[in-house]
């Protein structure tokens, strides 16, 4: 009886501690998640009375799975996997985006005759199906009047693309950083990199389960506040911020430098986000030949918290 009481009380203490402020954050390993990394490293979440338990995943795609399975309450990922998950009926919301980036790129071999965009025609091209660089390929091809049938597509995992390109099994590939950077480093002048430019800007999204966000509006606000503090810090101390991110990813500062410049670290829900979600949603539905209706993406953007904290970074149509 005594033992039972002890065990029960232990559980209650644990439950209370949990209810109070602990949030499991499923984090991807990517520079674009710089803001949440800094917020955690500088203790900004703690300042807001939130204890973040950070769990690092190899990719955003995997960390999203942890959120869907209920093992995490907070996570971040590129917008593309988020959209796929929404299309399959998962009830999740984006509370903010923390980076706009041009990470998705095309690298091609000049010695295989690819100098300008349209040279891609008839070439062997690697892509990781369903990723944001795969979406970039779709945008890139249609933007240059090419059809998917005009190139020979090779579905691959990103880490294998470099080998295949260097060896010459493919002539080009669409991927994201750092998979472009390392291939370019190895191939040097033999390779050419095409940036997405205006065609496509990727977003790092911060997401939660819809139920949880609705039931805990104060927690969401606290998180957003901490993220905004981190944004400030990165603006004022870019050097320090880079150190923090490099340490988190376990790489040298030099190796994140070239990509850092291409990332706009900003907590926002701007007017570009809804059209982007809709375009990717349309693409995803077409690609999967599933006639499910495209959902209303507005329902998957939880703007209330950011609106309270910093109204001017929320697009009018989301208010």
């Amino acid at each position: 009886m005594y033992l039972l009481t002890v065990i029960l009380s232990l559980f209650m203490v644990q439950a209370q501690a949990h209810d109070l402020t602990t949030i499991v954050y499923a984090a991807p390993t990517t520079i674009t998640a710089g803001i949440p990394y800094v917020a955690q490293a500088n203790g900004y979440f703690k300042e807001q009375n939130i204890k973040i338990e950070e769990k690092l995943f190899a990719s955003g795609r995997e960390s999203l799975e942890a959120l869907l399975a209920g093992h995490a309450q907070l996570q971040s990922v590129s917008e593309t996997p988020f959209i796929h998950a929404v299309l399959q009926g998962n009830k999740i919301v984006t509370i903010a985006t923390v980076a706009v980036h041009g990470e998705a790129k095309l690298i091609a071999r000049k010695d295989r005759g690819i100098i300008k965009e349209t040279d891609l025609k008839g070439k062997k091209v690697g892509t990781a199906p369903g990723t944001n660089s795969d979406y970039f390929m779709h945008v890139f091809l249609s933007g240059h009047g090419l059809k998917p049938n005009d190139i020979a597509i090779f579905n691959m995992k990103a880490p294998q693309m470099k080998t295949a390109l260097v060896k010459g099994d493919i002539d080009a590939y669409f991927a994201w950083e750092p998979h472009i950077y390392y291939a370019k480093k190895e191939l040097g002048d033999k390779a050419i990199v095409f940036n997405p430019g205006q065609r496509y800007s990727g977003r790092q999204t911060i997401n939660m389960n819809a139920d949880f966000a609705e039931k805990n509006p104060d927690v969401v606000r606290s998180i957003v506040r901490a993220l905004l503090r981190a944004e400030e810090f990165i603006k004022k101390n870019p050097e320090k911020a880079r150190e923090i991110v490099a340490a988190k990813l376990g790489v040298k500062i030099e190796d994140i430098d070239p990509m850092w410049k291409e990332i706009d670290f900003k907590v926002q829900l701007d007017n570009g986000i809804l059209p982007l979600f809709e375009k990717i949603g349309k693409w995803s539905a077409e690609m999967n030949k599933r006639a499910a209706p495209i959902p209303d993406f507005k329902k998957h953007i939880y703007a209330k918290a950011l609106l309270r904290e910093k109204e001017n970074v929320v697009a009018p149509e989301l208010r």
Partner: peptide
């Protein structure tokens, strides 16, 4: 491949 791809797409 179908299993991996469907997983990637959350299907």
């Amino acid at each position: 491949y179908r299993v991996f791809y469907s997983h990637e797409m959350f299907q």
